[in-house]
């Protein structure tokens, strides 16, 4: 099912929206012009994952020397800080963890949208402050941008 989130101008880079689709709460992110959508429920204890801080990856071979870089697409749950890759929902904190659902996101032109497409309600969200793949995978969703509208595929 395709769900319209918003007009692409309403989701500029480094911003996010948390939207409600039926019972689901989904966070839609624009990171450096790339769109991602992920379930807003952390598989660990159910925290509001999409309110969490985004970071790029941190790499260290030598204690005290840390390189950060790349796309800031790792979201840390605002509760226990477990991190998930927005693109895949994959967690990186070792084995034995469950995934969080990621959804497909796209931007679709108004003309291309059919009447069956649902509209997502934006949720008021509290202000967000701020490796080795494991079996925890966050639910992600496909996102497309088709000219004007940000659309997620559930």
């Amino acid at each position: 099912m395709k769900v319209v989130v918003c007009h692409v101008e309403d989701l500029p880079a480094e911003e996010r929206k948390i939207v409600k689709v039926g019972k689901r709460s989904i966070g839609v992110f624009n990171v450096d012009g790339e769109f991602y959508a992920i379930s807003n429920r952390c598989p660990h204890q159910g925290g509001p994952l999409c309110v969490g801080r985004l970071s790029s990856w941190a790499e260290s071979e030598i204690p005290g020397e840390v390189e950060v870089g790349g796309s800031a697409r790792f979201v840390a749950c605002p509760w226990h800080g477990w991190e998930y890759d927005l693109a895949t929902g994959q967690s990186f904190m070792g084995p034995n963890e469950i995934g969080v659902k990621a959804f497909d996101v796209c931007v679709t032109s108004g003309a291309a949208l059919s009447e069956d497409v649902a509209h997502a309600e934006e949720q008021r969200s509290p202000t967000a402050t701020g490796r080795e793949p494991g079996p925890y995978v966050a639910e992600t969703f496909q996102v497309h941008v088709e000219a004007d509208y940000v659309v997620i595929e559930i």
Binding site: S60, V66, G94, E132
Partner: peptide
């Protein structure tokens, strides 16, 4: 130790595997 590392690994990113490993 493992559980805490999952949340605070960014303080010690040179700890690249689970502490118990």
């Amino acid at each position: 130790f493992d559980k805490d590392w999952k949340g605070v690994w960014r303080e010690v990113p040179w700890v690249k595997e689970r502490p118990s490993d």
